[in-house]
Simulated assay, not measured.
Amino acid sequence: MRVILADDSAIIREGVAALLGRRSIEVQASASSAPELLNVVHAHRDDLPDLVITDVRMPPNMRDDGLQAAVSIRETYPGLGVVVLSQYVATRYATTLFATAPTRHTRARDHSGGIGYLLKDRIGHVSDFIRALEVVEAGGVVIDPDVTEAMMRQNTSGLAHLTPRETEVLALMARGDSNADIASALVLSSAAVAKHVSSIFAKLGMTPHEDNRRVRAILLYLAHSDPL
């Protein structure tokens, strides 16, 4: 496995690079700021690595610059897996990142890479960290257990109230299927699928004016059904 590593701390970059090297994972290049990360990835566009690993908070603004760089990388290089590391349990960061997940048809066309959102403390759990990288390299989705726990506290009771059909619809949503895909897979009308989706949102306490309802519902399902 080859990775591009981004963190504003040279000590963390060197430490993570050494850890990865002991597991035969090559750090192809590194960056200390979000703009540098974008430039490094672009410079390797003809020989992309398997993953980009980046911190959320990066120069120049030390806010969510690394996260925004990850989103930009997902848009420009959809086949490149991305793992975002965060110092804090912030579900909004996870929601922003996973909003870049494509539909099933897009994934088939662009061979989209996996996505991971982990807390920085997870690096210390070496086996878990490496396993998470392997899942993302294979095109999978990984969410840090502490983040999933926070999400579960927000809406878990709603999942328990979903009907079997609604759970099935939500599982297909989590797979990346559009409403049309779901209608075809379950042999339902588009109106029936739309009704199920609306019911799912209502039971999860997600109102129509909220942003990224679909992404948040999918993340909650993944947190409940497939923890790290």
Rank of each mutant, 00 (worst) to 15 (best):
A174S: 14
I11N: 05
R213S: 01
T106I: 05
A17E: 14
P164W: 04
V83M: 07
T167H: 10
A94H: 13
A17P: 15
A132G: 15
V16N: 06
R109P: 01
V16M: 07
S24H: 08
E26L: 05
L5E: 03
Q68L: 13
D181I: 10
E210N: 04
H111S: 00
P164A: 14
V40F: 09
Y77S: 02
L97G: 14
L85K: 11
A31F: 03
E26M: 03
D50P: 12
R57P: 12
R13G: 08
G21R: 07
L20W: 02
L37K: 01
S33L: 03
V147H: 09
P227G: 01
T163R: 06
S178C: 05
G114W: 00
L228T: 11
P60A: 06
E26D: 08
S112D: 13
E134M: 09
H125Q: 12
P49R: 11
L133F: 12
S178L: 03
S198G: 15
S24C: 09
I53S: 08
R92T: 14
V41C: 13
D7F: 02
V193L: 00
A69E: 03
V126W: 12
P49H: 02
I130N: 05
F201K: 00
Y77R: 02
A34N: 06
S225V: 14
G176P: 13
V187T: 15
L222C: 14
A108N: 06
V147T: 02
E168D: 11
V141A: 13
A6L: 00
E210W: 11
L119V: 11
M62S: 15
A180E: 04
P35R: 01
I200N: 00
A31G: 10
T100Y: 09
Y88T: 15
V197W: 11
T167E: 13
V197P: 00
I73D: 10
K195I: 02
S9D: 05
T167S: 11
V215G: 01
K203F: 03
L19E: 15
L85F: 15
G205S: 06
P60W: 05
D226R: 10
L133E: 00
Y221C: 12
A90E: 13
L188P: 07
L5T: 01
D47L: 07
V141D: 13
D46V: 11
I12W: 12
E75W: 07
G79C: 02
I182F: 06
E36K: 15
I143W: 01
D146K: 04
L51S: 12
H44F: 07
E149V: 12
P145R: 10
L162G: 01
F98R: 09
I4L: 07
G114S: 09
M151P: 03
R107Q: 12
E168G: 15
